[in-house]
Design a protein around this nucleic acid. Sequence first.
DNA 1: CTATGTATGTAATATCATAACACGTCAAGA
DNA 2: TCTTGACGTGTTATGATATTACATACATAG
Lengths: 160, 160
Amino acid sequence: MPDPDLAFAAHDHAHCAHDALTRAEAVTAAAGARMTPVRRRVLEILLEEHKALGAYDVLARLATEGFGNQPPVAYRALEFLVEQGLAHRIQRLNAFTACVHPGQDHAPAFLICRTCHTVAEAEATAARASLDAEAARAGFQVERSTIEALGLCPNCRGQA
Amino acid sequence: MPDPDLAFAAHDHAHCAHDALTRAEAVTAAAGARMTPVRRRVLEILLEEHKALGAYDVLARLATEGFGNQPPVAYRALEFLVEQGLAHRIQRLNAFTACVHPGQDHAPAFLICRTCHTVAEAEATAARASLDAEAARAGFQVERSTIEALGLCPNCRGQA
DNA sequence: CTATGTATGTAATATCATAACACGTCAAGA
DNA sequence: TCTTGACGTGTTATGATATTACATACATAG
């Protein structure tokens, strides 16, 4: 996964999204989990853009498409996707974003542009290793980590 | 700041808290900001333990002490403390914790024990540097970062 | 002493999230 | 085949977190 993050660069997004969806199907199948219509649709919605969507945003979309319109519908699908590693929760935004490379073991960091709100998934193996090491110095065992950055993406930086 | 984190170790907490409070007064004075009764009290409350408190927890305490009992009272004081670098927001918990070494420039990471809920502030300079570097590869400029770990503290690890 | 900016108090409301229960579907085993 | 149990979905209701807007009080510079 050596590519610096694509989210900010012009790219064939239809392909990017389709590819992620295909891999998602494979991941769920391998896990013996069920990729139901709601779940697939939520993932598709998240894949439409490199942004993070709140549960209620997703819910509104679902509701117009004939799915349930109560919060648990969205939260359950999102929770499922996160558990399967197909989506990530962005703590800073109370929102969710599709995983760009599902199925691969990875330590993600998220780069959140404060201007255009694009969210890029970056590689955080090194940062995570530092965190683990520093935690170990205190005798703390890290199980899950949240690494998020707020700042300016290259595009918005150019305009400032 | 070479000390591995104290939060998990037995220590003279009264001194630890008093020291932080003293430094906090100095910080606000230097910044030309006002350390008012509500603000001081909120900081004292946060300093009582190495835990994170929700805004409503703080608010409940304030209310019993004759301060206002509406959410903005707590949120404003907390926001002030965070701005001054005297407290930190723990995104994962939607909660706040007092800064252990106010006044010093530092890149904090937070170690959150999932069992005893102690929150330790660790040094994250290295992790932050990795994050900045990886972000730079994508042309992203980091302004603020959130680095949090969820796991087991040494004490709770011993009991498991 | 008074004008100005800042802090506090309060009401109302917005936003985010979960508990609890009912119903439907599907597949495994009696 | 029938039944049972696990799982997914839908819905109601509620809980938890956070902000907007406006009124009042207070400190300090002029």
